[in-house]
Each structure stands twice: as C-alpha cells, then as structure tokens.
Nucleic acid binder design. Structure first.
Lengths: 261, 261
DNA sequence: CGCACGGAATATGTCGGAGTAAATAGGGAG
DNA sequence: CTCCCTATTTACTCCGACATATTCCGTGCG
C-alpha cells in the first residue's frame, strides 16, 4: 500500500461504483473537452503521467484505452499519446457529451446539438405516428399524466418527461434513431442546469406534449412532426435565453459540485 | 514468453498497427454484435478468458475497457462481466458499426440506418445550401470532377464520392451533424460489398450528385434537401435489392435467431 | 417459518516491475 | 546531399501479488 493517510486523494471525482480508471478517464476527458489539452498536444509519458496522478500505470493505461475507444486520443510507440483532431472525436458518445457539459459548454456546440435534435425528433414523431401500437400509446399516456401530476420542477416530473420521449422513440421501431435521440436528449438535459439557474420555467410544457401525443394517436405523421418541431423550437428558445443570461452574469462560483447523473 | 511457434496465433485479425488489446476488443465486439454472446450473458472470469485467448490479463482487461466504453459490457466485482442490453450499446460508434457489419448484418438494422440517413442527409444539404462559402463549393466541384473521371468502380472514385459528401458536411457548420453523418456514411458504405456482390451498379450516380450540387450552389435549401432525398432513396433501393438477392440465395442460416431484446 | 444481520468466499480492481517491440531521430557510409 | 543503419525512446505486453467490493449463505432473532 503506497498511499498513506497524510497524502491527499488522487482525485476528488471518485465515488462509490466509480472505478479508479473511470475517474481518470473522466478527468482526462473533461480536460480534453475543455481545451486544457488541445488537439495535437502530446501527453506526458505513461510513467510520468501515472505518477503525477498518483495511480499505477495499469489504471492510467486503462483510462487511455477508454479515451482511445472514444476517438479522443491515439497512442503510438515512440510518438507518445497525442490528442486527436476534433473531427475524430465521437461527440455523440454519451460519456463524451457528459464531459463536454461538465465544464462551460461551448455555445456553438449546443447550437449544433439543438439543430440535430430539430432534425431528428420531428422525424421520429412522424415514424411513431405511423408505427405505434396500443402499448406505445399507453406508455405515452401514462407518462403524460405523470408529467401533469408532478411538474417539471420535480425529479419525478422530469423522469416522466424522459419516459414520454422514450416511448415515442420506442414506437419508431428504429434502433439507430433510438440510440441517437436518447444521447441527444440526455445531453440537452444537461442544459437544464442553466435553465434552472437563470429562472424558473415560465411556460407550461404540457400543451406542447399533448399536441404531439394527439397527432401520434390519430396517426397523422405530418402533424406529429410539426408539433414536435414546435416543442423543440421552444426548448431551444428557453435554453438560448438561459445561456445568454449566464454569459451576462459574473463568473459562476466554481464550487458548484455538479456530479452528473 | 509463453507463446511457442507451434501454438496457433491468438487471433488472425492481428495486423501491423493493430495492438493486441485492439484485436481482442475486435474479436469480442464482433462476437457480441453477431449474437454469439447475448445480452445478459456473463463472460468467463478474467483469468479463465484471458488464458483461453492466450493473452495476459492486462491485455484482456484493456479490451474489456474498450467494450465498456462503447456500452457493450459492464463489469462489477464478484458479479463478473456481462453483456448489456442492446439499447445500451453505442450503435453509432464507428467501431461498433464496423463490428456490426463484420458478419452478416441484420437487415432490420440496415433499414434503421438508411432511415436515419434519409432523415439527416437532406437536412444537412439544406444547411449546406444556406451556409456554404466559396471554398466549400470549390471542394464539392473538385470531388464531382474526380467522380466523373474515375467511376464508382474504382477506389479513387469512391474516395471522391466520400469527399463530396464530406464537403457538404463541412459546409453545414455543425459538428454534431458532421460526426453523425460521417459514421452513418461509413457504415452504409460497408453495404457496398453487397451491391458489388450481386451485380454491377446499373445506374449512373453522377446526375443525382450534380442536382444536389447545383441546388447548393444556388442556395436553394429546399431543392438541395429534395435532391439529396432522391439520392438516398436510390441508394436504399440499390442496397435493398442487393440484400434481397442475397437472401434468396443459398440458405445463409435458415434459423432466424430473433433474440427479443 | 420468515426475515434481518453478519461473515466468508470470489471475482474484479489496483499495484509495481520487468522485458519486448516499434518508430523516430541521429549518425555514418556512399 | 541522399540513403541506410543504428541507437534510443516510448508504448506494449506480461507477470504475480494484494486490495476492495459484492454476492452468497449461514446464523440468529422475531
């Protein structure tokens, strides 16, 4: 045991159920996404970096394998481990998205995600309207009633919101669409912190969701797509104003322990 | 060194520039995607499996970290390493897509990808028409001329095809869209093997591409989206007929293993 | 008889070191 | 000045040991 009681912990982002190499990957990932390590930069050697992080080479290497699997870095003998250009990153990977939103998210990237969401989600609603069965509709209806009971200010309400969107995705009968939208939705939900930070949601989101639901029930694909389009547009508007508020505010206190999920 | 010359190589998919743990990950990944290991299955212990694969526990563990990073498996002490349910897989990860197409690709999944492509690419063309600059148009024009010179039967021609689509993506000014479409496009190109296997392409793809190009030049977003929509539809038609040809051929495994996720 | 608590077994997680292979940089020969 | 060869640096692989977390099961109590 090389760690004595006086030495500080290797990383503060180390919780239960979170392995050491996962914590290292999280730390390096957020550092890369935040720009601390720019594309083309060469990381210190294995031995040096592992020693600096107070972990063994095994843990460090396993973390590097994770980052390599997500396209963030590449290692070659003699050349070292270097950060890959941004277009090689798997930006749609859930973990990478989480890392991107761990710090101050790039506004341009948020715009990109919302544009993608505005493309994908209406199309998903269109498919759902054409392919849903009774069970799908039942799941949506239950999620809607749950949303009405709890509001979006509670955890249960937000869970119901996710359930509603997930029910739509399940009704599309399209795995690729499902995975993609789930990732984007989760990422977009990271921005919820900004919405809540700036001011409470002034708008009641229930009618928008009901419009989507009604269109899917009646099997009207065009109407479902349009209703979903409106829903996404409103969400974008909320987030945009929240971000602008944030940018006009003084620097946020760094001690906001924002542990994801 | 425990490997002697008489023993068979741990994996035949081991080439230069390909690390050992990468090869292990590739092997396990394809096995999972092909259904050899179904969701919920528990892999043998680290020591046993590593020994079976004729590799050290370190290499095996690093491969598992890669699979974990892509959402295919999850490991917990005492519980072992088990394959996660299919909806946890990062199906849009380039490597996972490659593994999915390494064996006999699932027709339903191919349909999902084409549906997603049909959603995303026209929208990308619409953005490109609105945001492209001179350099973007220049890149597209050069790719088109290269496509005309070499046909799609040559590697250079297919590279030009990719360049054309990449130029459109770059013109969207949307990183998320760029990453996604690049992955999907690469995956769809895996199906090229089926097209070529069945019969030579009877259709000349140049006019379709020129229509997209002209619309983007004139800044007509709606026309660009429609032209791209036609292009994707035709590609889908080609692939569908090629796959049907394959399926009507000798019994490629009559047992449709439909593992309900 | 059923449930809650606690200890033991077991598989993953972490560690440190040794040796191998590969790629770049530098020096030497043509 | 070019080309090839050598040397060095770095990641890659292997090994064996210990630590830790979780599950399982036996025990005791209600």
């Amino acid at each position: 045991m090389k760690l004595d009681e006086t030495s500080k912990k290797p990383d503060e982002t180390r919780g239960p159920g979170r392995r050491l190499h996962g914590a290292i990957a999280h730390r390096l990932g957020t550092d890369i996404l935040s720009g601390k390590y720019a594309p083309g930069d060469v990381l210190s050697g294995e031995v040096a970096f592992a020693e600096e992080l107070k972990v063994s080479r095994s843990a460090y290497r396993e973390a590097i394998q994770v980052l390599t699997a997500k396209g963030l870095v590449a290692s070659r003998p003699k050349a070292g481990t270097r950060v890959l250009p941004r277009d090689r990153w798997n930006l749609l990977d859930p973990d990478v998205l989480g890392w991107a939103f761990a710090g101050e998210p790039d506004i341009e990237f948020v715009r990109s995600l919302f544009e993608l969401r505005a493309i994908v989600e209406p199309a998903a609603a269109r498919f759902a309207a054409a392919r849903r069965d009774k069970d799908d509709l039942k799941a949506m209806k239950e999620a809607l009633t749950a949303m009405r009971r709890h509001t979006l200010t509670t955890d249960a309400g937000r869970a119901a919101d996710r359930d509603f969107h997930n029910a739509i995705l399940a009704a599309t009968r399209n795995d690729a669409l499902k995975v993609l939208s789930a990732s984007i939705g989760a990422a977009v939900n990271w921005t919820t912190q900004f919405k809540q930070r700036s001011r409470a949601l002034p708008r009641n989101p229930i009618p928008d969701h009901v419009r989507v639901y009604d269109a899917i029930v009646s099997g009207d694909g065009a109407a479902a797509a349009e209703a979903m389009n409106v829903l996404v547009d409103l969400a974008l508007e909320d987030t945009r104003s929240a971000i602008e508020d944030r940018d006009s505010l003084p620097p946020v206190g760094a001690s906001d322990a924002l542990t994801g999920s």
